[in-house]
C-alpha cells in the first residue's frame, strides 16, 4: 500500500470527528437538542460531494484539452464517489429532518436543489453508459460533466438563498450561520469533519482510478 501522509491524516481527522463530535459540548438549542451534532457528519457529505465533483470537472476539462483515457477514468471515478457522498447526505438529511422539521421530506428548496443536482449527475452516468464507443463516451461525458458542474453550485448555494428555506443560512445569510455553530463546533467542523471526509472521498476515488487503470491497461497503453 502507498502509505501517504494524507491517508493517515484522513484516519486521524475522521476518528477525531467521531470522538469530538459525540462527546464535546455543543450549544444548547431548542428543537435541535443533541441532534445539532449531525452537523459534523451530515454537512461534510455535501462538502465532500462538492470537492469531488470539482475534481471531476477539472479532469473532464483536461480530457477535452488532451484526450487521454486516463483523464476520463479519473473524471468518472471522482463523480462516482461524489454521487455516493451526495446520496448519503440526502438520506442522513432526511432522517435528521424527520425529527426536527417533522417530515423526512418537506420539499425544502435545498432538499430539492440537492436532489436535482444528484439527478443531473446520475444522468452523467446514464449518458456515459449509453455509448459503447469509449472515445465518444469520454468526450460526450466530459462535455456533459461541465454542464452538470455549472448546475451544481446554483442548485446548492444560489437558488436556496432566493426563497424561504428550512435550512439555516436561508434568505441571504451565509450557509454556516454563526448563530448555529459556536467556536468549539466550528473548530471540529472545519478542521476535523470537513477535511477528514473530503480526504476519505479522495482516497476511495484514487482506489477506483487505480483499479480502472489495471482493468483498462490494454486501452491505456494502446
Amino acid at each position: 500500500m502507498k502509505i501517504s501522509w494524507w491517508k493517515i491524516l484522513c484516519v486521524i481527522l475522521v476518528l477525531y470527528t467521531l470522538i469530538g463530535g459525540l462527546l464535546f459540548d455543543v450549544p444548547h438549542k431548542k428543537i435541535l437538542n443533541e441532534s445539532i451534532r449531525n452537523i459534523y457528519f451530515h454537512v461534510p457529505m455535501w462538502f465532500g460531494m462538492m470537492v469531488l465533483f470539482s475534481i471531476s470537472v477539472v479532469y473532464s476539462i483536461k480530457y477535452l484539452r488532451n484526450p487521454s483515457l486516463l483523464y476520463d477514468i479519473q473524471a468518472s471515478a471522482y463523480a462516482r464517489t461524489g454521487i455516493v457522498f451526495g446520496i448519503l447526505g440526502l438520506i442522513t438529511g432526511a432522517l435528521w429532518a424527520n425529527y426536527t422539521w417533522g417530515k423526512a421530506w418537506s420539499n425544502d428548496i435545498k432538499q430539492l436543489g440537492a436532489a436535482m443536482a444528484l439527478l443531473v449527475y446520475a444522468a452523467y452516468f446514464v449518458l456515459r453508459n449509453s455509448m459503447i464507443d469509449i472515445d465518444k463516451r469520454a468526450r460526450v461525458g466530459a462535455v456533459y460533466n461541465i454542464f452538470a458542474f455549472a448546475m451544481l453550485f446554483p442548485a446548492l448555494w444560489i437558488v436556496p438563498r432566493l426563497v424561504e428555506s428550512l435550512h439555516p443560512g436561508g434568505a441571504g445569510n451565509p450557509g454556516a450561520d454563526p448563530r448555529d455553530m459556536d467556536a468549539r463546533m466550528r473548530f471540529i467542523f472545519w478542521l476535523g469533519a470537513v477535511p477528514g471526509f473530503i480526504l476519505l472521498g479522495i482516497w476511495i476515488s484514487t482506489i477506483i482510478v487505480r483499479f480502472r487503470k489495471i482493468e483498462d491497461k490494454n486501452l491505456l497503453h494502446a
Binding site: 500500500m1 502507498k2 491517508k7 476511495i204 482506489i207 487505480r210 483499479f211
Partner: peptide, 12 residues
C-alpha cells in the same frame, strides 16, 4: 479500505 488499497497495490 486499507486492505483494498493494499490489494490494488499488489495488482499494480
Amino acid at each position: 479500505l486499507i486492505s483494498i488499497d493494499r490489494k490494488v497495490s499488489r495488482l499494480e
